[in-house]
Design a protein around this nucleic acid. Structure first.
Lengths: 134, 134
DNA sequence: TTCAGTAGTATCCTTTTGGATACCATGAAA
DNA sequence: TTTCATGGTATCCAAAAGGATACTACTGAA
């Protein structure tokens, strides 16, 4: 299953360079925002741009647009533009995108285990959010 | 299981800030090298510094040291120094570290699926490795 | 007429991540 | 006496990732 000796074969797929399929996956779902975006889409069939923004108050518009475009180009979600005014754009997971949900859930479980092991210090962001929501 | 509304609670654990356990996990096992290091330790009970370097010819000494220290400090592996000369230092997974192996395997599977979907372009690195090995 | 709401671009800047290079201590072997 | 191997540090630098701010087009409502 694992590819123990494959370390030496440097490959490329959709512009990402890697030596191991794991690396490729991290390039596709890694980063600061992509897991969050996929996570939110997991529970709602479709979400429009503004709704996504509201669920992630800390992300900037540029970042959200950028990450969504990459996820779309990697086939993890679809982007549907409605010719209305004001504009409406809806995002939804593809089958490929749904495939990573179990991985995110596993990551979530590991994170909780890690938290339990080391303890958590809350940072006062309940208030920060209240202000961020405007 | 999922923490849908937890997006708003910004927490901290071992110096890492996050809003969701997933993020924490990615902070712990993400990055360019950590998954690889854990992957190699998965199949060998203990590995010394130089052996790890040989399995990852592209990593620099600084990076390997840095990543190993972080993994150690996060409790994913142990570092054993033998008072010999020349020095010998051995690294091994902890139980916590072994816990992420299934996640790496899942990432590996997803990566392969992704490759299968989009195709791979090999970059000539079989030769690159031969030279990198010195 | 000005404002709000949507989904963006464009530009510039800061922070984080990763990399190149040089250096160190030790003891055994050549 | 010089060299080699090991497992590092220290310093500086380049590239990538992420962020702040300003701007756009369009329309309907106030």
């Amino acid at each position: 299953m694992g590819e123990p000796g494959t370390i030496c074969g440097r490959r490329r797929c959709r512009g990402k360079e890697y030596s191991c399929s794991m690396e490729l996956s991290l390039a596709v779902i890694g980063g600061k925002w992509k897991p969050l975006i996929l996570w939110h889409l997991r529970e709602t069939p479709t979400l429009r741009f503004s709704a996504l923004r509201r669920t992630m108050p800390a992300i900037t518009q540029k970042m959200l647009t950028q990450q969504l475009r990459e996820l779309e180009s990697d086939g993890l979600l679809t982007r549907t533009v409605f010719a209305e005014v004001p504009p409406r754009v809806e995002y939804a997971l593809t089958d490929l995108g749904r495939g990573i949900i179990p991985i995110l859930e596993a990551l979530c479980r590991f994170g909780k285990e890690f938290e339990a092991r080391f303890g958590v210090e809350a940072t006062d962001a309940t208030t920060a959010v209240a202000t961020a929501q405007r």
